[in-house]
């Protein structure tokens, strides 16, 4: 965060912008876009053990017009491609995309030479902000992905990264 020099708008309010970013980061409303197996881990993250509500993101909106972040959880197909692109275009700015799971990153286990139907990664269709590897990634990994997105938005991390050992 901070490598780009592009200002977010013509008129800059320094402290107000960082306050707005803090608000946006702490209340990311995801769109329910669970396609396949990763959707179940996303639901587990919304459950009470790996509570996503502590990060302000438990309000899964069915409509793209009311959501901030699209968590692409699952495999994208050639048949579904147009629908996904439409949903991404319908989300209002500022919007972010989290690619959850190996299928959304690169096609995952379906990126083989016989592949005739799977789009190899969500980033072939629209820009992705955070990639979460795993098949499926654990709920803790999804939470780490949300914290990485928050860091991307505000420039600061909610709490320090844990290093093993």
């Amino acid at each position: 965060m901070g490598e780009e020099n592009v200002p977010s708008s013509i008129v800059q309010f320094a402290q107000l912008d960082s306050l707005l970013n803090l608000g946006r980061a702490n209340s990311l409303w995801p769109m329910t876009f669970g396609l396949a197996c990763c959707a179940i881990e996303m639901m587990c993250t919304g459950g009470s053990r790996y509570d996503i509500s502590r990060f302000g993101a438990e309000v899964f909106r069915p409509s793209p017009r009311q959501s901030d972040v699209m968590i692409v959880a699952g495999t994208i197909n050639k048949k579904l491609e147009l629908a996904v692109k439409t949903l991404y275009d319908q989300m209002p700015e500022p919007k972010w995309v989290i690619a959850m799971g190996n299928c959304a990153i690169s096609g995952g286990p379906f990126k083989v030479k016989e592949n005739y139907n799977v789009v190899e990664g969500a980033d072939k269709l629209f820009p992705v902000d955070v990639y979460i590897p795993g098949c499926p990634p654990r709920p803790e990994a999804l939470l780490e992905g949300i914290m990485t997105l928050e860091e991307k938005i505000t420039g600061k991390r909610r709490w320090p990264r844990v290093h093993p050992g």
Partner: peptide, 17 residues
């Protein structure tokens, strides 16, 4: 199962995309 406008039959043995 395939898109309606697909023009191939994938499970034929001589099909490779």
């Amino acid at each position: 199962l395939l898109p309606e406008d697909a023009d191939f039959h994938p499970l034929r043995k001589d099909f490779m995309p």
